[in-house]
Design a protein around this nucleic acid. Structure first.
Lengths: 139, 139
DNA sequence: AAGGCAAATGCAACGTTGTTGCAAATTAAT
DNA sequence: ATTAATTTGCAACAACGTTGCATTTGCCTT
């Protein structure tokens, strides 16, 4: 695990530090997306708020994670898959937010269908957000 | 215009006050969505920050406006069409954010296509967010 | 039209969230 | 090991959002 983390950092030309290791670990430990405050809580008292902000910013720029907007106005972050390094994302899957347990997950297998826009509009990025009840809460 | 505003308020069982009038006017004066700070700036010094928060909250609850999440983590609001009063929204259209001028608009004519979710997931609400260059910026 | 009640507003205080500058510490390269 | 560059923590600050309470306003009844 630690090895995988370090490789991930190196691959993205980032120096290996305690904070970055810890935050990456949190992302790898679960498949749901994390908000800034999630990370701050789970990382314990060990890291400064500012470091978390800056680390997330760096990860975003390097394409390690992507941001997911949510209806309640709190941005969440999730790990990108292998093929979207370098700021260019293959982020064309649906995001799901459970209204019961609050988890946010990437539904990698659900592609966003193509949309025909009215004349004059040019699409650059598409984000699809579905809220409802998730697999786990439904049983 | 003033008449239309008052009717809208009455129809939604809201008392008619200066603040509500002014905020509704702002929404009617343009077709783009407004953030909290947009409203605060345009309303001038006349209204307290808190009043704006509470008014938007009230309008949301009554179904006069709906919230639109955005990638930069600032919630915007837009007027609902006639048929979605009472908290139940017919909010199944696409939202478009222009990366050039920053405007957010509802593309009423573009419906969100149905999505098939993996087993166990139940959809309650779908939000679709497209960013790119808008009609006006493209010419 | 006036009085009384409920609702809305403004104010103050507070908590949270996010940003910036700078000095100290840590990392990576030589 | 030394050095240069990056990263971190701290402090201060700014923006955003919430709450309680006193005052004002809108609205209903008579």
């Amino acid at each position: 695990m630690q090895k995988k983390i370090d490789e991930l950092l190196k691959k993205n030309h980032l120096s290996i530090t305690g904070g970055r290791r810890k935050i990456l670990e949190l992302f790898l430990q679960q498949d749901g997306a994390l908000s800034h405050s999630d990370i701050e809580k789970r990382a314990g008292e060990k890291f400064d708020r500012v470091t978390v902000y800056r680390t997330l910013q760096t990860f975003l720029e390097k394409g390690l994670i992507h941001g997911i907007p949510s209806p309640d106005n709190s941005l969440r972050y999730a790990l990108c898959k292998e093929d979207c390094s370098g700021g260019h994302h293959h982020d064309d899957h649906v995001h799901f937010i459970c209204t019961s347990c609050g988890i946010t997950v990437c539904l990698e297998e659900v592609m966003i269908p193509p949309i025909k826009l009215p004349g004059g509009y040019v699409s650059e990025q598409v984000e699809m957000l579905i809220s409802g009840v998730c697999k786990t809460c439904n049983r």
